[in-house]
Computed example of a mutant assay.
Amino acid sequence: MLNLLQRFSDAFLKDINLGVLLIDMDYRLADISDRACQMLAMEKEHIRNKSLDEIFATVPSQHQLVQRTILNGAIVRNHAVSWTNNQERFDLLLDSNVLKDSQGNIVGAYIIFKDVTNMRSLEQMVQRSDRLAMIGQIAAGTAHEIRNPLTSIKGFLQMLRRTFGDRGMDKEQNFTDVMLGEIDRINALVNEFLMLSKPKHVAYERIGVTEVLRGIVPVIQNEAILYNVQLHYEASTHLPEVTADIELLKQVFLNVCKNGIEAMPDGGILTISERVDTTERNVCVDIHDTGTGIPMFVVDKIFDPFFTTKDTGTGLGLSVCQRIIHDMGGTIRVASKGFGTTFTITIPYM
């Protein structure tokens, strides 16, 4: 019977799709499930039988998954926490309790956590999608009413500018340049509003992500030079084809790369890498910058419409990107630990 229970325990820790930590009375890690190792980005052989203080030494105490109070009998149920390893960010639901012997003495503790990132992302995506659809409907209905007077104003301003130039009125000509620039900015904002509604004339076809990225690398390189940023592009061989709109996919990659470059005003490295997730059958593109990172309280808001940390931003760029990728059946996820940010764009392949 004991041998059977031991086999079950070993199989449970190996096969269960949950993070499981077993802790002894010395606050050491007695065992850990394979899924927990994946989420924590740690190797079982390197951490088993080590003190949890040592394992999580680089993590601030308030963000650690485990507290010493667990051995005093502290029970946790459905506690929501966020965890970011060097590659991904996870939303977790955590349970913990103590283990007792037949006399009722505490002999250790366990922690079980489940990855609910996709569930939470889906919930947030539905909420954002509803808001974007409403904004898009309003925008589609008012765009022409805004653009028509703007076109008239722009035309007369261009005539005034030409007249001022002919008469040598440089100061007045500069004023018209400023006004024309602001009109162009309003037009650009209207275009972004229109993108919030489902894009018209979408042409889905089977394409190679590598070919799309290679086509826009020169554009990204030129932008990077302006900010003293080095661009590293790590292409993958034999990526499966995905079904997507090539122009919209270019827009997403350019937008995310531009954000990454602008996050490094003092220079840095922007790395674009490709990979295949054969388990989930996704083509993944990781875009990593070496900037200061995104604060945890901001990460959950960056895809919200109109949320921006830029002085001149509209807060619509990432919202539009998420909408585009979502319509292709994919996802955009972000991970940031204070020393850089990684955006992961995943698109399913057949």
Rank of each mutant, 00 (worst) to 15 (best):
L196N: 06
I220P: 04
L92Q: 10
R161M: 06
H63T: 07
E123T: 14
Y227P: 02
D91C: 10
E223M: 15
L150I: 11
T279P: 00
D53T: 04
F193M: 10
Q103H: 07
V252D: 04
I16D: 01
L231C: 12
D170L: 06
A133M: 06
A74F: 05
G208M: 01
D10M: 01
T279K: 13
R68A: 14
N259S: 14
L316Y: 12
P60A: 07
I207Q: 00
L92N: 10
S319E: 04
F253G: 08
A335F: 00
V66M: 09
R28E: 12
K310L: 02
S197E: 03
I345L: 11
A36W: 02
L92E: 10
H46A: 07
T346G: 05
I269T: 15
L196C: 11
V212K: 01
P348I: 05
E280D: 15
S236K: 10
M328I: 01
N49R: 09
G208V: 01
I347M: 08
N259M: 05
M264Y: 08
L52M: 12
G165F: 09
N3M: 11
H326D: 11
L316F: 13
F307E: 04
G181V: 04
T290V: 02
N49V: 00
D15Q: 11
Q127K: 12
A41G: 09
Q87A: 13
Q137R: 05
V20N: 05
I75M: 14
F12Q: 00
A335V: 02
T342Q: 07
R162Q: 12
P60V: 04
E172G: 01
K100S: 03
T163I: 12
T271S: 14
F164H: 11
Y233C: 15
S51D: 08
V126K: 02
M39A: 06
K198H: 08
Y227I: 05
T314E: 07
I111F: 03
V76M: 15
T344S: 13
E211H: 01
R281M: 08
D327M: 08
K258Y: 13
I302N: 03
F12R: 01
S273D: 09
V98I: 14
